[in-house]
Design a binder for these strands. Structure first.
Lengths: 224, 224
DNA sequence: TCCCTTCTACCCCTGTGGTGGTAGGGCGGA
DNA sequence: TCCGCCCTACCACCACAGGGGTAGAAGGGA
């Protein structure tokens, strides 16, 4: 049973080149083509393709909006997003919207064919160049997290705890209540902590708490 | 010209299964096998393989250390790290150490063959499951960054700028100098910003700056 | 035109924050 | 045993932060 593919691209040449390429591939049946997102959504409803090759930049409705509409309507559709250049913002949006893959147009023909076959069986697929960027982001984030808990020179356990609470924006009084000690003691701990870290204001202490990884954005208790 | 492969795994069964698999594949020549990292480093020096299939968990010297040694000694070697389960910490280490790929042992035989061929021509390769995790991390980080600039209700451009500077731990005086306005004006801006965000101390403002994504850990100017 | 927002700037007042010093009890290493 | 570190706690002092109000200049929109 051939893989049914819909090609969506506003550029005539690109669209037809893809159609010809897919047509020549055994086991792949290009069932239709669209030149904008609106047409694409309509054709998915009509043709029920297995795979959609979707350009991003298009008139009327862009590829990302079209992808959202298509997946809302027919989740089993495998959408592969095509892009001319590596645009990481789109990677995020496309993948969280549920796109099955993300490849660049300068990918060799045989790899595009392979990509269609890959997503058709339900696997994810991302271009190496894009994967590399993902890895770099991952590595960067990971490095930041690894630096956590490791640095913070010479702080006693209590002082580390104090710094963590400073990092949540707590006042001395609030810290005292949370640790069930007197505010005077908190002031002493804060004093020592800031001296060791060479800080002069508690705002800097909050920065230090975040930068050291003691406090991670997204895991904080806001509001006061 | 066949792709010369070295197989490194402490488990006899896994090692020989891989050797047999690679032996049966046309264009692939399994030239040797090692059962620990130290042997692997020695064999790379002797055999100069194109590709190394490297297990992580091994006695004597683990796969990641061996990978580092091998790439320091012979950078053109393509190391593919094998793992039983998806262990993201290793992904980071392996890839930043220069590994060409990262695949799981439960990958179907034909895909393992394909992986060897892929890295042999210098391309990167990562298992879909691992890619998925990378994407999730990327998406998570990206989401945090996207929330920036978007949320932060009703702040004027100047107030946003003030909040960003508050987020670096700056005092009113420092902010005044950086923006070339009077400290009195800074106090006014700070006052309005904090009222709008329902904050009472500047430490909370620092927290808000980080949590909103206005300030990203790792991109801050410490010290003061 | 007038109004609203924004950015600029100042005064007054209260309070928390930040720094100095002092000190006792507990605990572990020399 | 004694020394040193850690946690606890207090006092005194002053600067900066935070909240109140007021106000003029500039720019955009009704």
């Amino acid at each position: 049973m051939a893989v049914r593919v819909l090609v969506v691209d506003d550029q005539y040449l690109v669209r037809h080149a893809l159609m010809a390429l897919l047509n020549a591939a055994p086991g792949i049946d290009p069932v239709g083509e669209a030149s904008d997102g609106e047409q694409a959504v309509a054709l998915v409803a009509d043709l029920a393709p297995d795979v959609v090759l979707m350009d991003i930049k298009m008139p009327v409705m862009d590829g990302l909006s079209a992808t959202r509409r298509i997946l809302a309507m027919r989740p089993e559709t495998q959408v592969v997003v095509l892009t001319t250049f590596d645009i990481p913002e789109y990677v995020y949006t496309a993948l969280t919207d549920g796109a099955a893959g993300f490849i660049m147009k300068d990918t060799p023909p045989d790899r595009i064919i392979a990509a269609v076959r890959t997503v058709a069986i339900g696997e994810m697929l991302i271009s190496p160049a894009i994967t590399l960027r993902l890895v770099q982001t991952y590595a960067q984030r990971h490095r930041v997290e690894l630096q956590a808990n490791t640095r913070l020179p010479d702080l006693t356990p209590r002082e580390t705890e104090i710094l963590r609470l400073l990092g949540t924006g707590s006042t001395n009084e609030e810290i005292a209540n949370q640790l069930a000690i007197s505010e005077a003691t908190v002031k002493t701990h804060v004093k020592h902590t800031m001296r060791k870290l060479n800080l002069t204001t508690r705002a800097q202490a909050v920065v230090a708490a975040y930068e050291s990884g003691l406090v991670i954005p997204g895991s904080a208790a806001h509001g006061g």
